[in-house]
Design a protein around this nucleic acid. Structure first.
Lengths: 223, 223
DNA sequence: TTCCAATTTGTACACTTGTACAAATTATAA
DNA sequence: TTATAATTTGTACAAGTGTACAAATTGGAA
């Protein structure tokens, strides 16, 4: 069956926001893309800020639920390296893949998050913090468990880099294609996920742990 | 001596753009922050897009020059690991530190770049590509030299992640503070630089090289 | 069918935007 | 000083913004 106008509006809003940010997209742009009138947006969502809030509510819960589900599976792995790998995948994969039937898709929503977080829109910033901080905290704990004895500072920063890498891979995939002279396809999300997970895995593994003592080397952790 | 109005306008523009993006900042905002009139912006820069172009011209050359200078020094290091570390620092450090006397500072300009690249402003996108792709390409080459035999795909993606991590560290430093419960200071840029370089170092080192064969395991640390 | 509520449209409002340009001001040189 | 150029201001304009709301349309139950 045909999706309701409400659905269409939400979908197109995500697409447009993820492409150009929150400020640059007008309600009329969204209406036009949906073949509808501006008034319908006020009718369904009341205000632009509230439209954004609805988008978050629509995607946040399924995505975080899927993450925590995968995290639960990962936690049952006893080998720390394999577990670390699984935890990272549990965090990354749901951000790149569709959360439910045919909502805008996890990747598009995540890309929108990335763009809005960069724009620093106060509304968005608060909504993002509310929706994701708890999940992020849980994951940081799980990651720390995979590298026992590693300094918290290193774990937190690396999880920050993980999110940054994730965001930027979605925001600017064509840069990968361009810089590789076309040899690498930045839009290939499966590869992107694998590369992010592998690179992140290495960055966490490099932290000094209680098992393998730091013993100098070029990289000195933090003394 | 007091800076000219032109300088003041450029400086405040960087600050405001880096905080809220290109679209959300009006010329009147910039004028007000500078204690001047809107007209002065049209007079000095002609248009908003051209103001942006001037900002880039002002910062791009010194920053890339400094990067290439440090890269030259790094290249003389024979030990591949030490060299890799130095190459990474050569890329990251100038992005975080003031390029000349008292221009907005490298970090603020880099943050602005991050925000604009996320906004996907067409003007900005083109300017960024022109200004930084060549430098990025040179660095990718230098990085590849530090991990001989590593697949190009891995090198390119990791350099993409490096930039993403860099950007996000500047865009959202308070997230680090928040998620660590105040234990880690996200605004501490010296630490941020060190953490980015260390994490990136590990991610590049984990690539399979001709020297040390891949030989199974989930992924090799640095051994 | 008829009736009523839900939805969609059209339009108007006050406000902000980038840009243009004449007038006023300030700096500089003769 | 005076004259000439370089700035800075003030203001006006058309276009676009989010929001409000009456009118038109549609959908479903009686």
């Amino acid at each position: 069956m045909r999706p309701s106008l409400r659905e269409t509006l939400l979908l197109n809003a995500v697409t447009l926001f993820s492409r150009s940010g929150y400020n640059a997209v007008s309600l009329r742009d969204i209406a036009k893309a949906s073949g509808a009138n501006v008034g319908s947006l006020t009718y369904h969502f009341g205000s632009k800020a509230n439209l954004l809030r609805e988008i978050y509510e629509r995607h946040t819960k399924p995505m975080n639920a899927r993450r925590l589900e995968l995290l639960g599976e990962a936690r049952r792995i006893s080998n720390p390296d394999e577990r670390l790998m699984a935890v990272l995948r549990a965090y990354v994969v749901p951000a790149f893949t569709s959360s439910t039937e045919s909502d805008g898709g996890g990747a598009e929503f995540t890309r929108m998050r990335a763009v809005l977080s960069a724009e620093g829109n106060p509304d968005a910033r608060q909504i993002i913090a509310d929706a994701f901080d708890e999940t992020s905290r849980v994951f940081i704990g799980a990651l720390a468990d995979c590298v026992p004895g590693a300094p918290l500072e290193g774990v937190v920063w690396r999880s920050q880099f993980l999110l940054g890498a994730l965001y930027y891979a979605l925001i600017n995939p064509e840069r990968v294609t361009r810089l590789s002279g076309g040899a690498v396809d930045g839009e290939d999300r499966e590869t992107a996920v694998n590369q992010i997970v592998e690179a992140s895995f290495a960055s966490f593994r490099s932290l000094p742990t209680e098992a393998a003592a730091p013993e100098s080397s070029i990289v000195k952790g933090k003394n």
